[in-house]
Amino acid sequence: MSLAERMLKIDRRIIFLVIGLCTLLPLLYPVGLPIRISSEVRGVYDHMESLPERSVFLLSIDFDPASKPELHPQAIALLRHAFRKDLRVIAMTLWVSGTGMAEQLVTQVAKEMGKEYGKDYAFLGWSPGGQAVIINMGQDLYSAFPSDYGGKPTKDLPVLDGVRNLKDVAYMVSLGAGRPGVEEWYVFGKDKYKFELGGGCTGVMAPGLYPLLRSGQINGLIGGLRGAAEYESLIGQKGKAVAGMDAQSATHLAIIVLVIICNVFYLSLQRAARTQRQIG
């Protein structure tokens, strides 16, 4: 058996091991690859920067633990930025399976930034209905969420002073890992109730949202771990996303090298077979 044949029949577990090492080693020994800021991520950052103090910022955490590696760092970076700008943060989720994770996330960042629940931020929790919740919030926020995650009546929360519906929100970002997510927030939210909307999504979803971005339907897009790393760089607080970028880049490189090697061996085998046929 030639080298090419042996390589094409390589045990798949060796490839898993290579990918594992490419992930683990950069995490243990970071290289610090440069991160270029894209215009999509800058769109979200610039809009957040332009908001005056105590503006209302709505963050919809529309993902569950399955998408945590990519979207959790985005949420942390956005919340840190919002709290640093002293915005009034209203967090919520349209994904029932992400409720506990979202509450933990918001509480953790708020505590880190020294913010007070009810005065500086609130977590509304989950309400059933997906797009119907968005429409309901556009008409009356208190009807969609009569009480917050802890069961307190939302009408009694000082952070919601002057907020009746989505039209009173200065900026809204949906971090979505599927449906309902960014598209639903545009279709049933911004398009109908006219507020500024930004998005965040997993890496594989980003190409599908570019038509909304190019037409100005959303004013910025944070795509995957790369987007989160860019946002962390912009706010000057490097975290898990920047650390993970080295691992992601090394893994991508390993996959590209494996694809090239595999094609080279495949073509060399084809050529050898053709030569043998000509000789025979």
């Binding site: 797009q131 119907a132 429409i135 545009y186 279709v187 049933f188 398009d191 109908k192 038509p211 190019r214 037409s215 100005g216 339907q217």
Partner: peptide, 18 residues
Amino acid sequence: GLAIPRTISSFILKQIED
């Protein structure tokens, strides 16, 4: 009733406009 008009507005008319 909720989805069809909103989808046409968001994904057809707005995209044509752009």
